[in-house]
Design a protein around this nucleic acid. Sequence first.
DNA 1: AATGAATGAGCCTTCATTCAT
DNA 2: AATGAATGAAGGCTCATTCAT
Lengths: 189, 189, 189, 189
Amino acid sequence: MAAILEAAAQILEAGGLAAFTTNAVAERAGVSIGTLYQYFADKNAVLCALAEREMNAVFLRVAEALRGDVGLAADGRVRAMIRAIVGAFRGRQRARKAVLQAILSQGQGGEMMAPIAAFITRAGESVGRAPAPVFAALSPEQIFVVSRALMGAIRSAVLEEQAFFKSRSFEDELVRLVLAYLGAVTDGP
Amino acid sequence: MAAILEAAAQILEAGGLAAFTTNAVAERAGVSIGTLYQYFADKNAVLCALAEREMNAVFLRVAEALRGDVGLAADGRVRAMIRAIVGAFRGRQRARKAVLQAILSQGQGGEMMAPIAAFITRAGESVGRAPAPVFAALSPEQIFVVSRALMGAIRSAVLEEQAFFKSRSFEDELVRLVLAYLGAVTDGP
Amino acid sequence: MAAILEAAAQILEAGGLAAFTTNAVAERAGVSIGTLYQYFADKNAVLCALAEREMNAVFLRVAEALRGDVGLAADGRVRAMIRAIVGAFRGRQRARKAVLQAILSQGQGGEMMAPIAAFITRAGESVGRAPAPVFAALSPEQIFVVSRALMGAIRSAVLEEQAFFKSRSFEDELVRLVLAYLGAVTDGP
Amino acid sequence: MAAILEAAAQILEAGGLAAFTTNAVAERAGVSIGTLYQYFADKNAVLCALAEREMNAVFLRVAEALRGDVGLAADGRVRAMIRAIVGAFRGRQRARKAVLQAILSQGQGGEMMAPIAAFITRAGESVGRAPAPVFAALSPEQIFVVSRALMGAIRSAVLEEQAFFKSRSFEDELVRLVLAYLGAVTDGP
DNA sequence: AATGAATGAGCCTTCATTCAT
DNA sequence: AATGAATGAAGGCTCATTCAT
């Protein structure tokens, strides 16, 4: 199963969604097509499982990055999170791109985005407490806007294969975007 | 040609990307498949032409909305632009969704996004002049971030078919996002 | 279309139902698989069309055989009909066998049998009139029993590839079966 | 082995021939696919064994029904036999239908029919003896015709799922068919 | 310019069967 | 004897594209 997902990622990375056929994946994984179907209901199930795997990798990175941040100031926590997310897209950008596209194609983008939105919310809240409340609690629309805006910018950079993707200045702007928005929400319109 | 594009939009709207076959488009357009290929090099060309048509519609709306805004304050201009963009997605959301997906699938999202980025830049600049400079000039990364973040939030709302898509509160948050970012850029880090 | 049906009959004749694949039929017909699917919705549609063609052939034979029989005695008409039916199975018995099986597999056997039942009924009625009523009118169960019994015996002879299938003595027994039954119905239990 | 056959019958009953896969049968039987192949050479062997089991059930019923019939008149014995056969199809009609189809698909219908033909022959003979000879001895063609005609009518009623299948009037007609034929054979053409 | 029948590569998927454990 | 993961040939079917008319 892990081998199949790994093969799927490699196929996606090498040839994009067009090359992603069940036969190709099975062959790359070194198993028969029958075996692939023993583990995955259909082609789409492979894609979804891969998406989950990729997303989990992102979460792990972010969680790990935030672990030692207790006591860090608001902007420090936000920066750590963004750096972790951007960093999670290191390598295999085409595969991730394809996974993103595929998942978004099925209207399941919302579900996959939920944990990230939750992260941002929690980050805002925890930061907002000590020593003094910095940010207000976010409404559903606000959570939506800030999480999708952040991910949208990152996503575009991946999909458009922007050279500055992992530059410091890009990271700076993302941090600025999130902090500015959170600050604006707190200060009122 | 216009009939073919219109048919393509209808097919996309009715059945999504899965139903978008050259034969289906030709039949819906009332022309033969051969004729379709007389005007479009291949299936993808139809999609790109459609994307261009759709994007142009957005531009026209935005341009029209901003025409009478001379003298309006910064936040008024930004709100007008956002309202125009969101409004441009009225109706045929599935078709636009499919077009968005298709275009983004090909890494041509950047090209299509360029005019919007330009718009935001110009909006920021023009707003920044009179009566007194309000916003600083934007660097390429900054233009990228603010335009993709804005479009990313809108895009997600369309793709995820969010109920609040055309609500006032959603618009408010988008305006807040852009203004907060532009303000932060001006004020320094 | 005719070529495809003819190919289907040949494939069926040569290799039975197991060899009846859409690819094989298309190849034998000298057309591409795509062309086959332009004329038939799916594999099953080919089979049904073939069944209809085969059944029509039987009807034509029977109708033609009965055309000149006005004035013939009851047993003469019944014999003519049976001879026509049996004769219709001449050649391509495997194809007909496969068609029979396939059709019966789908519970559509009843529909295909209806015309034959009607034939027997009409034969019985017309015979029952002149010069004097010979046979009583048949109830639905009776029509069912006599038509299915007759066809069942013929069918078995085809499927089991009985040597006596087209012998005179076999025909004699079929005639005897039908006449005896019709007579018994008329005379009472 | 019995468990496997029972599972096969259930699968057939529930989903017809299409659902009848070796894996499905093994799973339903609660054994591994490997075990199934330990007892049956291949998929077809399962079907044949099931057919034999089903046919045996019919024979047992018929034999039992005829056990106490010594001294019964000819029509009494024939009716008892027919009632037993029809009754044997009670329940699991889909399974029996599938078995019938499958068996007949392989041209092995003849073998399975032989015992029934023998039964009819013996019934005719035994009936023909006491107290006075009633029916003449049957030729091979005659045995064939009467047994296949009878089974053909029953078979059709099962396959077409006729509502009157187990009605008294249907039974009456079957009895009439057999007796009329046997009588006609005896009386001469 | 327009037509549309024909093409065929190739996709997804099933399932009977094997064999090392 | 039993297991069940693995196999892979083969099938039905789609659809972008061509080309003779």
